[in-house]
Simulated assay, not measured.
Amino acid sequence: MSTEGMTHEELMALPVTVPLETANRALMIGRTTGYSLAKRGAYPVPLLPGRRGYVVSRYHLHRYLGVAAPEAGEASSEAA
């Protein structure tokens, strides 16, 4: 089964916290691998306890992936 990642726009539109499944997709980690890493304490970003399992902060995902929102007044690469 192939893992499909997220576009930059999808990453920027994430809520403040996301479930582990969404973080797995953003990091292009398969479901089984993601849950295994979380269980072993080896997930690539910090995990937070949620009501139904782990959640991941958007901040940590963005930081790990090296993505940032365009600065105010900065032209997007599509407009150039």
Rank of each mutant, 00 (worst) to 15 (best):
V56S: 04
T17V: 15
R63G: 04
T33R: 08
S76Y: 05
G30D: 10
A13T: 13
T17R: 07
A68V: 14
Y64G: 01
A69W: 11
P19D: 11
A68K: 05
A38L: 07
L20A: 02
E10K: 02
Y59G: 00
R58N: 09
A13S: 15
P70R: 09
E4S: 13
R52I: 07
G41W: 06
L47D: 06
G5R: 00
T33K: 05
V16D: 13
A13D: 14
P19K: 02
G66M: 01
L37G: 01
G73K: 00
E10L: 08
L37C: 02
S57F: 08
G5K: 00
G66F: 02
Y54H: 12
M6T: 02
P46Q: 11
A68G: 10
T33Y: 03
S36D: 15
R58S: 07
T22K: 06
V16S: 07
V67T: 12
E4A: 12
A23T: 10
G5L: 01
E10F: 12
L61K: 03
S2Y: 12
T22G: 01
R63W: 11
P70T: 13
Y59D: 07
P19R: 04
E74L: 15
V55E: 13
A26D: 15
P46R: 09
S36K: 06
P49M: 06
K39M: 04
E9N: 07
E78Y: 09
V18Y: 08
L14D: 05
A72N: 01
S76R: 01
R31K: 05
E9L: 13
P15R: 02
S76L: 11
